[in-house]
Computed example of a mutant assay.
Amino acid sequence: MIITKATKEDLSEILQLQYLSYQSEAKLLNNFDIPPLKQTLQEVQNEYDNGTRLKVLDDNNRIIGSVRGYIENGTLYIGKLFVHPFWQGKGIGTKLLKEIEHTCPHNRCELFTSSKSAKNLQLYEQVGYEIFKQQEVSNELTFIYLEK
C-alpha cells in the first residue's frame, strides 16, 4: 500500500471511487442526494487546484482511497476521506488522515461528519480529534465538527 499525492489524471478514477464509497453514508442518512454523490469532475478538479489530494494505491496500483485538504488561516480543512468498501476497516482511513496532516503545514485541523456516522466519529476521536460544534442541517441531519 502506497500513499502519494494524486495527479489530475487520477481525478476521474477518484471520483468514481467516491461515488462507490459514499453509498454507505447515503444509506445511513437514507438520502442518496448528498453532495459527494452529486459532485462533478469539474468540481473535483477545482478542489484539486485549491488544495492537496492524496491517494492510496493497492499492490496492483489501483486507487483504493483518497483524502483532500486545504489550508486557510493556518487551519487544515480535511474532507472527502474515503476508502473502497472492500478495504474499509483495515486502518487505511487512519493512515490517510495522518498523512494529510503530515503533508500540509498547519496550526489546527478541522473536519466534519454526520452525527449518524459512528465509525467516522470513532476514527476521528481515536486519532485525537475533539468535537467542538454541532450544526443541525435538518430534522434528520446534524453535522458534527471536530478539531485537533
Rank of each mutant, 00 (worst) to 15 (best):
M1K: 06
M1S: 02
M1P: 00
I2S: 06
A6N: 14
K8H: 10
S12C: 13
S12W: 09
I14Y: 09
I14N: 11
L15E: 03
L15K: 01
L15F: 07
L17M: 00
Q18P: 00
Q18E: 03
L20D: 03
L20A: 14
S24F: 09
S24C: 12
A26F: 01
K27Q: 11
L28G: 07
N31D: 07
F32C: 06
I34D: 01
P36Y: 04
P36D: 01
Q39W: 07
L41S: 01
Q42L: 11
Q42W: 02
E43Q: 05
V44L: 06
Q45R: 12
Q45T: 14
D49W: 03
N50H: 08
G51S: 01
G51V: 00
R53M: 14
L54S: 04
L54T: 05
K55C: 12
K55L: 05
V56F: 07
N60C: 10
I63S: 00
I64M: 08
I64H: 05
G65Y: 00
Y70H: 06
N73T: 10
Y77Q: 08
Y77W: 04
Y77K: 06
G79C: 04
L81P: 03
F82N: 13
F82A: 05
V83T: 13
H84R: 02
P85K: 00
P85T: 08
F86L: 15
W87I: 07
W87F: 14
Q88P: 15
T94K: 14
K95F: 04
K95V: 12
L96V: 08
L96N: 07
L97M: 09
K98H: 15
E101A: 07
H102R: 15
T103A: 10
P105N: 09
H106S: 03
E110K: 04
E110N: 06
E110G: 00
L111D: 13
L111K: 02
F112K: 11
S114Q: 04
K116C: 14
S117M: 03
S117N: 07
K119F: 15
K119I: 10
N120R: 02
N120C: 04
L121F: 05
L121M: 10
Q122H: 13
Q122K: 12
Q122W: 05
Y124G: 00
E125T: 03
Q126Y: 06
Q126C: 07
V127C: 05
F132Y: 03
K133C: 12
K133W: 15
K133P: 08
Q134H: 06
E136W: 14
V137Y: 15
S138D: 01
F143C: 10
F143D: 13
F143H: 11
I144E: 07
I144L: 12
I144C: 05
Y145E: 08
Y145M: 12
L146P: 01
E147N: 10
E147G: 03
K148D: 08
K148G: 13
K148P: 08
